[in-house]
Simulated scan of single mutants.
Amino acid sequence: MFELIDSKIERRGSSQWDDKLVFATKNIFVEPSAGPGWRSRRSGVQVRFSIPAGGRGDTTIVQEFGPKDYGALAKAMVLSDDRAALKAFATAIALLADEKEV
Results as ranks from 00 to 15, higher is better:
E31N: 03
R41G: 15
F29C: 13
R42H: 11
S33W: 05
R41H: 11
G35E: 00
R41S: 13
G44W: 05
F23A: 04
E31S: 06
A34R: 05
E31D: 06
K26L: 15
W38H: 13
W38A: 11
T25P: 05
T25N: 03
R42W: 11
W38Y: 12
P36S: 04
Q46L: 03
D19L: 02
S50A: 05
R48G: 11
V45W: 09
S40F: 12
K20F: 11
S43M: 05
V22R: 06
R39E: 13
S40T: 09
I28K: 05
F29K: 14
R39L: 13
K26V: 14
W17M: 00
K26W: 14
F49A: 04
S43T: 11
K20C: 09
P32A: 08
R39W: 09
G44Q: 02
S33I: 06
K20V: 10
W38C: 12
A24G: 13
S50Q: 02
G37P: 04
F23N: 03
V45Y: 09
P36A: 05
V45P: 05
A24I: 09
R48K: 12
G44Y: 00
I28H: 08
S33M: 08
N27S: 15
D19E: 03
Q46R: 09
G37E: 03
G44L: 08
D18K: 07
N27Q: 14
K20D: 14
V22A: 08
E31K: 03
V47P: 00
R48M: 13
R39S: 15
N27Y: 10
